[in-house]
Design a binder for these strands. Sequence first.
DNA 1: GTCTATACAAGGATAGAC
DNA 2: GTCTATCCTTGTATAGAC
Lengths: 209, 209
Amino acid sequence: MNATREKIIKRALELFNLKGIEYVGMRELAADLGMRIGNLTYYFPTKDDLVFTISQAYTESNSSIHSDFPVRSLYDFLHKNKLLFENGLKYQCLLLSMVHLMEQNSRIAANYQGKVMQNRMSSLTHDIELLEANEYLKFSCEDDKLLIISSNSLQSRFWLSEAVLTESRQNLALQMGHYLTMKAHLFRPYATKKGIKDIERFLLDLSDD
Amino acid sequence: MNATREKIIKRALELFNLKGIEYVGMRELAADLGMRIGNLTYYFPTKDDLVFTISQAYTESNSSIHSDFPVRSLYDFLHKNKLLFENGLKYQCLLLSMVHLMEQNSRIAANYQGKVMQNRMSSLTHDIELLEANEYLKFSCEDDKLLIISSNSLQSRFWLSEAVLTESRQNLALQMGHYLTMKAHLFRPYATKKGIKDIERFLLDLSDD
DNA sequence: GTCTATACAAGGATAGAC
DNA sequence: GTCTATCCTTGTATAGAC
């Protein structure tokens, strides 16, 4: 629990979120923290190490959300997604540079393509199948189920990227509600009566915020 | 119609698609073309100019598709989307760096946020409303329509990014069918009987390829 | 263990000789 | 139209002071 190290991580995340990982230089970050580059590289030998550390914090907080909020109803599922979206917003720099990080930062790539991606997919599949078993969702064929999982995954990963094309990096929080509504509507066609009630309750929550 | 200029554009697009715009240096491109950097900058003063030129070719080819293929049925719409996906694949480097280009390349940003984005949205809205009028689609509320437009837009922009996270940059063509199927399924819940027939015809086309 | 100073390589950009 | 030389910025590496 090194104080300087923690301060670097905290401030780096702030600047990365504000301007984008690629646009914050190590010298700039060091200057902002009132230290020299050499000192920064003492804590993080390379920029990739710093970004990897931040990415670990992100995946860990995501894991906590998954373990802390078991999905029993469609409402639970949508609510959990709201928490995941909020967490994504906190680490927006990672989601906005996902493709590049996976191609450039070998530690992130190895970690992500290893367990992170598998966990992500299996927990999503598990949730959907539980909602089907509990009669919140109903699929007319297996294809529908697989494709909703797939398009849900895409939407979760890239809503922030889409939002940046409309608004600036600084106003993303304002658009979150729209993309959560979109997610709810993705599931609506496959919802049972019970499921629709949950969706409407969730949408009501959103309009209250 | 300068031959050298055209050769540069052609080869740049190839290398950018292969490795990503950010990972192909001007020196590397020059060497590949058997010329010096200075000569390259004679034709394209900055890398941004080169990328902007490529982006113009992309938006122009997209516009042609829109004007050459008027949408009369849901099948037309899906087929047009297939052509747009194929064109996106040809210019994958742009779609894979969209967010960064919009934040970094001021000419692309100005152009895109000006007419390109408006055209994109208005032609999509126009198509959907025509399909509704011709009874291929039916929406129970206005919200459903707006949200399908929105999520369709997101899917079109980021299917390639999602594909890269699963496969390498080199094998994206293989995944296109999956994302076209996903698109068809996005519209399925809102399709009339007539619409469903079109969707099934389109899916049949896909499985033949 | 913590930090400064400095050097090196690579990439984009620019001026000017031919 | 082509090429050399040079500059600036960014990531990275290392020697050494305290």
